[in-house]
Design a protein around this nucleic acid. Structure first.
Lengths: 195, 195
DNA sequence: CGCCTGTTTGAACTAGATCAAGTGGCGTGG
DNA sequence: CCACGCCACTTGATCTAGTTCAAACAGGCG
C-alpha cells in the first residue's frame, strides 16, 4: 500500500493490532483529514484504517504525490505543514497518555472532537459520536467502563448531556477546565457536602 | 526557530513543559538522529531539546532544507523516509503508553536503547544511560520510583546488571520476552514458591 | 419474541502513585 | 584530608485511580 488517503465523508479510525490481537486506536479521522502518513517511512502501513460509518475517501498514490509535490512548490510546503501538524497532534496525544488522568482525557477528547467537527462546518457542541465507547477507550488508553463512567460523571455535573452516542456539550468552559486539571471532579463527595 | 537539528555527538532529550511546570519527555536522541521535526507544522517548536552531556549538533535551517530538497530528488525521498520513521516511532510509543504495563515499558526501553546504541556502532548490551531515572520515567509515563524498582526487579531476575546508570543486558532474549508480556515477572512470588 | 451488541452500573482487586526514609557518591569549603 | 550538603537513587509502606469481573439494561433486527 503505497498511498495516502484523504477522508471525504464519514469518519474513520486507524488502528494497529498487536500480536495478541488487541487493537490500539491510533486516531480518528474526519472529512478533510489525512490518513496513512505512517507508511512514508517503511513503505508499508503499520496500521489499518476502518470506516466507522458509510464514508468515502480519496486515494493519493505516493509516487504521484512526490512527483507533483516536486513541481508545485506550494504543495511541497503545504504537505510539510500537514505532516508537522500530524506530528504535533501525536506528541500532544503522547502527553495525554502519559500524564493526564481519566477525567481529563475524556473531557479533552470530547472538547477536541467538538472542535474538529466545528472546524468541518458542523456543530461543535451537539453531535453524534461515530465510534463506540470501546474505540474511545482504546484511543485514550483506558478501559471502556472507565470511559462510560467518565461520561456519566460529566453529565451528572451538568457539563454535558449524554444519550448513547449523542453528545451535547452544555458548558464548554468548565469542560475545558476539567480537561486541564483545574477542577477536581470529585462530584459525589462535593455534592454530598453541599447540602 | 525555523530549523531542524541533527545530533552529532552526545545525547539529547526533547521535552515539553506543561503549564503546571511538569516536564514530559518526548524522546531521546542519539548521534545521527533528527531533532525538531515538530516545528514543520506551526513553524514553532512545541518542545525544547536539552543536552544530557557534552554534545554537539548540526543545524539545518528550514528554507535551505526545502530548497535543497526540491532540487535533489533523492534527498526529498530520504527526508520523507526519516519523517515517516519518526511518525512510526511515535505511534509505537503511543502504543506503549496506552497498553503496556510498567515492566514491559522498562524492558522495552532498555532493549530499544541498546539497539539504537548498537546501530550507532557502540555496544548494545553494555552501556551507560545518559539520562536520570526521572527522565526515563517521564518518557515512559511512570513515576521514577517505579522505574527504579523495575530496574532492580530485572536485575534480581538476572536479566540485566545495574550499577547506577551503568547498564549491562545479560539475557536479551528473556528481556525481550518481558517486553512483550510473555513473562509474568512476578518474581518474588515465583521465587519464594521455588524452594 | 428472543438474541445480539453496545452500554451502564456495581463491587472487589491491584498496579502503580505517592509519601517517607534511608543510602551513597561527589563536589565544595573549611 | 575530612565534614558537610546536595543530588540521584533505592527501598519500604500506604493509598487510590482505574482495571477487572459480573450483572443488568436498552435498542435494533431477524
Amino acid at each position: 500500500m503505497r498511498a495516502v488517503y484523504v477522508a471525504r465523508k464519514g469518519a474513520f479510525k486507524t488502528i494497529s493490532v498487536s500480536e495478541e490481537g488487541e487493537e490500539q486506536v491510533i486516531g480518528f479521522h474526519l472529512p478533510g483529514e489525512l490518513i496513512g502518513l505512517d507508511a512514508l517511512g517503511s513503505g508499508a502501513h503499520r496500521c489499518e484504517a476502518v470506516a466507522l460509518n458509510t464514508s468515502n475517501v480519496c486515494e493519493v498514490p505516493f509516487d504521484e504525490l512526490s512527483q507533483v509535490a516536486a513541481q508545485i512548490p506550494g504543495l511541497q510546503q503545504q504537505l510539510m505543514r500537514v505532516i508537522g501538524q500530524s506530528v504535533s497532534r501525536d506528541q500532544q496525544h503522547m502527553e495525554l497518555l502519559s500524564r493526564r488522568q481519566a477525567n481529563e482525557r475524556i473531557a479533552l477528547f470530547l472538547h477536541g472532537f467538538g472542535e474538529r467537527l466545528r472546524h468541518g462546518g458542523q456543530s461543535g457542541t451537539d453531535f453524534r459520536l461515530p465510534m463506540s465507547r470501546e474505540d474511545v477507550a482504546h484511543f485514550l488508553g483506558l478501559a471502556f467502563e472507565t470511559v462510560s463512567r467518565g461520561f456519566t460523571r460529566l453529565q451528572d455535573e451538568g457539563l454535558i448531556e449524554v444519550d448513547g452516542r449523542r453528545i451535547r456539550l452544555l458548558d464548554v468552559e468548565r469542560l475545558d477546565q476539567v480537561a486541564h486539571g483545574v477542577v477536581a471532579t470529585r462530584t459525589t463527595a462535593v455534592a454530598s457536602l453541599g447540602h
